[in-house]
Design a protein around this nucleic acid. Structure first.
Lengths: 203, 203
DNA sequence: CAAAGTATACCAACCAGTGAATATACACAA
DNA sequence: TTGTGTATATTCACTGGTTGGTATACTTTG
């Protein structure tokens, strides 16, 4: 156990989350994580068999909260389907304007560990994105969209693209641009009778 | 100079390019680069004042060739504007299917060094993407598109999104999906008289 | 000769991971 | 209650190797 009531393993994951998300994987030593928790490195290795294991646990811990947040933003938004999806991008833009924001932990980890294709952390990241894609596909299917998977993937491309671009330029307005593109693609894919009247397109 | 006629500095950059692109920045030591070139580390530090300097040179060396390739793909493609842009995505998908492909070096570097916002390599990456965005904007403006910057940014979001997603899932078909979205967005933004007749949209 | 370029040898700090001993907590017997 | 065994949890001290960077001296070339 520990000083507080929180189990040590969870406190280690919480510390790993902060450090890995902020500074990346390879620039954070196991010693640094242990020091942040206030335990010895040997204790950390009692709970996790390797650093790779710890990295996987770090991403696994971000999976559900992240998905839940997206769904919450979607559910809370007013308007039709395009507006509700666009709301995700708007909320993301708001997050991205916080100075501690550093993009998507899953994407950044997969970029850093690109030379280790089978790494458990990458598999967790891939599964995470697939879950989000599948959720979007179901939402679109329920609205009668002809090819819901295709549209879900296009929205995901815009989303992950905005993570990458905003991280590079440090300009969150790209996220709103992505949201408008998503809006437009969804609007165009909607069956005629569900489409809003005030579509702006072309010159 | 060197054994071959190629200056040592260039040979160092070539080796750094292979190693950094393949394995990332922090997992490649300066010793490894020097060994690959066949010089001592001290020689490397004669030509580059630090590792950060070398990383910047690595990305600077990828700037023009990369842009030239995109333009070449665009120019060589048949069809109208949407088809020509889509061709970039198709060619990219072909590249991404090669086993040594590891995504976009600029994006991966910015993801790995996200905790060093002012890093010279990140500035070079940002400038690179801005150049591409500007080129696209000019192309769109010449075709009479109402908001060419907005559209250029949306295409860029799809492009960088496909780099990230394909790297994560190792499934290049996402690039073709992105190309179709790009096609659709451009088609919709084109002035009516330049639009192709066979637009497919909706259910 | 002088300048540019390269090599040998080195440093102090850091890294992931481990062996062996120890502390804590709880179950159960006397 | 007290003692004892056992599994869990933790610490100390350490290893062998790697890291970015440098002081100094040697070599090549115009």
């Amino acid at each position: 156990m520990a000083r507080s009531g929180i189990p040590t393993a969870e406190r280690i994951i919480a510390a790993a989350n902060k450090l890995f998300y902020n500074d990346g994987i390879r620039s954070v030593s196991v010693d640094a994580v242990a020091a942040k928790v206030g335990v010895t490195k040997r204790t950390l290795y009692y709970h996790f068999k390797s650093k790779d294991d710890l990295v996987a646990a770090y991403l696994a811990g971000r999976d559900q909260p992240n998905l839940a947040l997206f769904r919450q933003w979607f559910d809370a938004a007013a308007g039709g389907l395009p507006a509700k999806v666009e709301a995700i991008f708007r909320n993301l833009a708001r997050s991205a304007r916080h100075p501690k924001w550093k993009g998507c932990g899953f994407l950044r980890t997969s970029a850093e560990l690109a030379n280790m294709p089978g790494h458990p952390a990458i598999r967790i990241g891939a599964a995470h994105k697939k879950k989000f894609e599948e959720w979007l596909r179901e939402v679109f299917a329920a609205e009668g969209i002809a090819d819901p998977l295709q549209l879900a993937r296009q929205i995901l491309l815009l989303l992950d693209g905005s993570f990458a671009v905003v991280l590079l330029h440090r300009d969150a307005s790209y996220m709103e641009t992505a949201g408008e593109a998503a809006h437009q693609l969804i609007e165009a894919a909607l069956p005629r009778h569900r489409r809003s009247r005030r579509v702006v397109r072309g010159a």
